[in-house]
Every structure is written in structure tokens, then in C-alpha cells.
Design a protein around this nucleic acid. Structure first.
Length: 422
DNA sequence: TCTGGGGTCCTAGGACCC
DNA sequence: TCTGGGGTCCTAGGACCC
């Protein structure tokens, strides 16, 4: 029998974070919007009950928002990241290892805790997180990540579990697996679900009983692993170390469509500069840069065009000005006049540690540019983002992302810290 | 007028090279 | 008459995740 592990997942995480500082948002329907205030990416229980779906475009549900006075907030990732940090600190004593899987989910390796009543243990961690951060959570226990995920979903869905579901017991496991459809299984999306549905495999239980060979031929190694995990055979362990990054991206939709090259280039320069900051923060250099931009794909009746151009960075670099130069070259190559562009982005790939960077023949010991980048980061760190910037980034920036409904930086900016008056 | 951003992994065709 | 195969690079897109 494999060692137990669990998944602790925050309930309606972004909404819960907003509610910590806004008690008036309790008990009423709340939505948190994606960047550009485009889609609903988090919904309170009340909003879910009104039938609002994950990822639903805000502008398509304007009437519903008005009719039910749904509160809509722009996303405030600085706040959410800070709350996440506090949650991980609260979980520390409850596990051998913690894998931070996403902003609101953590896998905990419970090896060495088997002698405890794990359901009580999980209740204690929920209590601790609630006490330290005021964020409600649910916990799923199992012998593989896929089972822990399913257990968590069961704990969320069925109040009988009281926030903690343990699938190590065979009867409970079978009961849960028979009640979730294949599409609810972690790693099974719409396309795979349709394929196995055609074979009369409808529930997670059916999927567990699918012959391995068949799983392999229908969905490759990915589906084969899922079937094994549903049988309680783990195919991936709880990993503390983050695997090395393959790439990084900075992409944004525009607040307003862009039709001329220099304005587009302003946005691209901004993203390239942000990509440089991210690389330097992680101590990495990149060997390739891709720049892309495209028109609004949701508009069927508008002329469509998109371009994506990859450039080799030689020597490998994290220097904003060099990234910018490459980005401009790529943007010029892909540019076509006469379209309304709504999104652009920069991706850097081929990443290696900056101190392991291969030197080129003509690279002298000149570190002026490194010092310039250091100074740029220091200024923007001290005086706020975009205090110092390149002229290409421009000053009007009409394409800027919308975030009209954003909450204050309650926990990370001193002027935004709530004041309690007695 | 208004439809997110950031990841990973995989596939596939054409260009080009040896 | 017979018209290769394997590698890499580039571009594009699909599938899935949160």
C-alpha cells in the first residue's frame, strides 16, 4: 500500500481572499474577473447558484449581474499570492513535504503520519488555515494524486464529508468513483471524455476498470497513467522541488484594439521589458524569443490575422534592451497593416541559469549592461513598477489592460493596510 | 464596445541540411 | 527505370491544467 497523501484546496480562493477584508461581501454573490475584466475566474457559492459558469465572459452576463446585484471585482494577484504564502506557512507542520501545485492547491505527503487519524489531522489543518488566514478549504486523502483530487472534489460537493474525504477505504472509494463522471477526473478533458464515452466508459469507476492496453491505445501514456492512478498506483510523487522552467510568457489582451505599428510596438516593448525582469528575477537567460500578436478571434465577421515569429538570441541574454531589439525585429517581420489587433505577447524559451551561460568569442569582460539592468530593477523595485522604462514602451499606453474594479493591496502596501479605529 | 494569463506536452507539415 | 532517410528548425495548433 502506497503512503497516503492529500490535496488541500481553497474554496472559491480569489473570492475568499477578497472577503477577508470586505465582510460586506459575505453572503452575497461575488465574481472575480480575469485580467482586462474579461471573464469570471472565481465565483462565490451564491454566484455559482445563479448559474454563472467558470470562464464566462462578463459582458455576456451584464443583465444577470444587474438583476441580482452581483459584486464584480478585478483580480488582485498581489493579494492572492500573499495569502497563499501564509497558507503554506500554516500547513508546514502537518506534512513531511508540501508540493505547491497552484495558487490555491497544495499536495501534502503524509508519509510518517499514518499512525494518526488522518481525517482528524486534515480537520486540524483546515482549522489552522482558517485561523491564520480566514480562508475556507477542503481536503481529499488518497494514495495517488488523482485519487486525492477526486476525494477533494467529493469533499467540496457532498456536505456529509464535512470538508474532508478519505478514499483509502475501498467502499468509500468505490462509492465516490461511481458518482463522478470521467470528465471530472484530473487530466481528462472534453476530447478524451468524448473518446472514452464512445466506448461506454462514463464514470470514474468505469475508467478505473478500463483495460490498460485499451487506455494506452485510446489516450496514450497520459490516459494509461490516469487509469493506474485511479487504481491507487501513483505515477507521480509529491515533489517539493520545482522542475526547471522551460519557458516564460508575458501576454496581454489590450483594453482597446490597436491598428498602428508603433502603438503595437509600445505594448510589445512593455512585455519584453517585463520578460527581462522575470528572467533576471529567476537568475536565467534565454536562447529564443517569440513575439506574437493577433486580431480578435471571437469576432467571426472581422478580418483575421495573426503572426508569431521566433528569433534566436545569440548570445543568450536577459537584457531588456536586447530582448526589445529582437522583439522589434520579429514584430516587423510579422506586421500587416489594416487589422485591429487585440492581443500580443512575448515568450522566452531555452532557459538556463545566467551563471552557466555560454560565453561568446567576442564577449569582453564588460559588465556595464548587467549593471544598467541591475539599476533598472532597483529603481523599479524601490519606486514602483515602470518608474524607469524604455521610450519604446511609450507614454500614452491606451492599450493598457482594464482593471477598474481592483481591491487595494491590503497586505503588501503600507498605505493600503486596513486601519482599525477603536 | 466588451471573451484571461501562464504553464506543459504533443503533433504535423514544410524547409533545409547532410 | 530507379527518386532516401533522418535530423533540426520554424510555424501552427490541439489538449489539458489552474
Amino acid at each position: 500500500m502506497s503512503a497516503p497523501l492529500c490535496l488541500i484546496d481553497c474554496n472559491n480562493f480569489y473570492v475568499s481572499c477578497e472577503r477577508v477584508f470586505r465582510p460586506d461581501l459575505n453572503g452575497v454573490p461575488v465574481l472575480v474577473a480575469s485580467n482586462n475584466d474579461g471573464c469570471a475566474v472565481a465565483r462565490s457559492a451564491e454566484a455559482k447558484a445563479l448559474g454563472i459558469k467558470m470562464g464566462e465572459p462578463i459582458h455576456l452576463i451584464k443583465d444577470k449581474i444587474k438583476a441580482h446585484s452581483i459584486r464584480v471585482l478585478s483580480s488582485n494577484y498581489t493579494l492572492y499570492a500573499d495569502v497563499q504564502r501564509r497558507i503554506i506557512a500554516a500547513l508546514e507542520p502537518f506534512a513531511k513535504d508540501i508540493e505547491v501545485y497552484s495558487i490555491d492547491e497544495n499536495f501534502l505527503d503524509l508519509a510518517g503520519f499514518e499512525h494518526l487519524d488522518l481525517v482528524a489531522h486534515a480537520q486540524a489543518m483546515r482549522e489552522r488555515v482558517l485561523q491564520w488566514t480566514a480562508i475556507p478549504t477542503c481536503v481529499g486523502i488518497g494514495t495517488s494524486k488523482t485519487l486525492a483530487k477526486l476525494a477533494n472534489a467529493a469533499a467540496k460537493k457532498n456536505p456529509l464529508f464535512d470538508g474532508v474525504a478519505d478514499l483509502r477505504d475501498e467502499q468509500t472509494r468505490n462509492w465516490v468513483l461511481d458518482r463522478f463522471s470521467v470528465e471530472d477526473v484530473w487530466g481528462v478533458g472534453r476530447a478524451t471524455a468524448a473518446k472514452v464515452n464512445a466506448l461506454r466508459i462514463a464514470t470514474a469507476g468505469h475508467l478505473r476498470d478500463m483495460p490498460m492496453k485499451q487506455a494506452r491505445s485510446v489516450g496514450g501514456v497520459v490516459l494509461e497513467r490516469i487509469v493506474a492512478e485511479l487504481r491507487g498506483i501513483p505515477s507521480s510523487a509529491v515533489e517539493v522541488m520545482e522542475p526547471p522552467r522551460k519557458g516564460m510568457a508575458v501576454t496581454r489582451s489590450f483594453g482597446k484594439p490597436v491598428t498602428d505599428f508603433e502603438t503595437l510596438m509600445g505594448a510589445i516593448a512593455q512585455y519584453a521589458s517585463r520578460a527581462g525582469e522575470k528572467l533576471r528575477n529567476h537568475g536565467l537567460v534565454a536562447g529564443r524569443l517569440t513575439v506574437f500578436f493577433h486580431t480578435n478571434r471571437f469576432k467571426d465577421n472581422a478580418a483575421q490575422y495573426g503572426a508569431s515569429r521566433m528569433l534566436t538570441l545569440h548570445p543568450m541574454t536577459n537584457d531588456t534592451l536586447e530582448l526589445l531589439q529582437a522583439a522589434r525585429k520579429g514584430a516587423e517581420r510579422g506586421w500587416k497593416e489594416g487589422f485591429a489587433y487585440t492581443k500580443a505577447g512575448i515568450m522566452v524559451e531555452d532557459l538556463i541559469a545566467a551563471d552557466a551561460r555560454p560565453r561568446t568569442l567576442f564577449e569582453a569582460g564588460d559588465d556595464r549592461r548587467d549593471r544598467l539592468m541591475g539599476a533598472l530593477d532597483a529603481i523599479n523595485g524601490k519606486f514602483g513598477k515602470m518608474t524607469a522604462l524604455t521610450a519604446t514602451q511609450g507614454f500614452k499606453r491606451e492599450w493598457r489592460t482594464k482593471a477598474d474594479l481592483k481591491s487595494p493591496a491590503y497586505t503588501t502596501r503600507i498605505s493600503d493596510v486596513p486601519v482599525v479605529r477603536c
